[in-house]
């Protein structure tokens, strides 16, 4: 008997496809939240695989805060055209009317009005009962508790203390009218998996992920790219050209770049492996004092 087994990336891929198909089979009106970033790129790629040769059987929803990098919007429109996808763009009209923006209202209010509120508006407007998202459990502690099928009540609220247990690959897709789920096909992926998969599958991503000379200013320890003329420069502040890239993409005024020369996927993966190693070592301090102290010194922490 053959003992060929799937690599872990192929296992993750198959699991994600399974989740996509379960949602489409069990829900009346699914949608995919498309944020244009690398996770969305992988999510979209998996959706195309899941239903091939049928086209992707649900629309993409981009909640546009109007502050995304210009390159992101360009990339989004190219992808949608190339793949023949249905794209819905929702901008919170209330927010626009009140001129909400990160520079004038601060990041918290901006995010709340233009992202969170806008998303709820769009879900209510189109009456979607399932929304695919690209969240991964490794991203942060609160996401580690998320289910693959994450139940939301009529008010889109999540109750982390009262979640449906998920066993094997048996997902419970039962909702009443007005209730919905967020489905997370990338739950078990790590950031490294995402990059390795992008490399393996040659998935197009926004060029901002690759290092290039870009105009940036330094604010509160973050390198912010001057993406358009709406960026108010403070006295004596002049953009400088630096070789930078982005690990995540969001609204340009809120997204810090990192200095890097990694301009290819293998270089990005290499850079991340080094970063991951140091991250993990930091966590190990308590448990393994002698060993990690030595290591920290080697890496010049002090």
């Amino acid at each position: 008997m053959s003992t060929s087994r799937l690599t872990h990336l192929r296992q993750l891929e198959a699991e994600s496809i399974h989740i996509f198909r379960e949602v489409v089979a069990e829900f009346e009106k699914p949608v995919m939240l498309y944020s244009i970033g690398k996770d969305s790129a992988v999510l979209l790629h998996l959706a195309r695989k899941a239903f091939y040769p049928s086209p992707v059987p649900f629309p993409l929803l981009h909640v546009d805060t109007t502050w995304k990098f210009r390159e992101m919007i360009h990339f989004r429109d190219t992808i949608v055209k190339d793949y023949g996808l249905e794209l819905l763009v929702h901008i919170n009209p209330e927010g626009v009317k009140q001129g909400i923006g990160p520079f004038t209202h601060g990041s918290a209010l901006h995010t709340d009005v233009m992202k969170t509120e806008a998303l709820k508006q769009a879900l209510d407007q189109y009456k979607f009962d399932a929304a695919f998202g690209g969240a991964r459990r490794d991203e942060e502690a609160s996401r580690a508790k998320e289910r693959v099928f994450s139940f939301r009540n009529e008010a889109h609220r999540w109750d982390p203390k009262n979640q449906r247990p998920e066993l094997w690959n048996l997902y419970n897709g039962r909702v009443r009218k007005g209730e919905s789920i967020r489905a997370f096909p990338l739950s078990n992926w790590t950031e490294l998996d995402i990059w390795q998969y992008i490399y393996m599958e040659d998935i197009p991503i926004v060029p901002l992920y690759f290092a290039a000379e870009r105009p940036v200013v330094e604010r509160e320890g973050m390198l912010i790219m001057v993406d358009d003329e709406r960026m108010p420069l403070e006295d004596g502040e002049t953009p400088m050209m630096k070789s930078v890239r982005f690990r995540t993409l969001g609204c340009y005024p809120l997204t810090g770049a990192i200095e890097s020369t990694a301009s290819t996927l293998p270089e990005i993966i290499q850079e991340m492996l080094v970063a991951r190693t140091s991250e993990r070592q930091g966590r190990l301090i308590d448990k393994d004092q002698a060993g990690s102290m030595e290591k920290k010194k080697q890496e010049g922490y002090f």
Binding site: A14, I17, H18, R21, F51, S54, P55, N169
Partner: peptide
């Protein structure tokens, strides 16, 4: 069988893991 894959009249596939 998770989903009957039917993009057109000439193709009828059964999708599953």
């Amino acid at each position: 069988v998770q989903w009957v894959n039917r993009p057109n009249l000439d193709f009828r596939g059964f999708s599953g893991t």
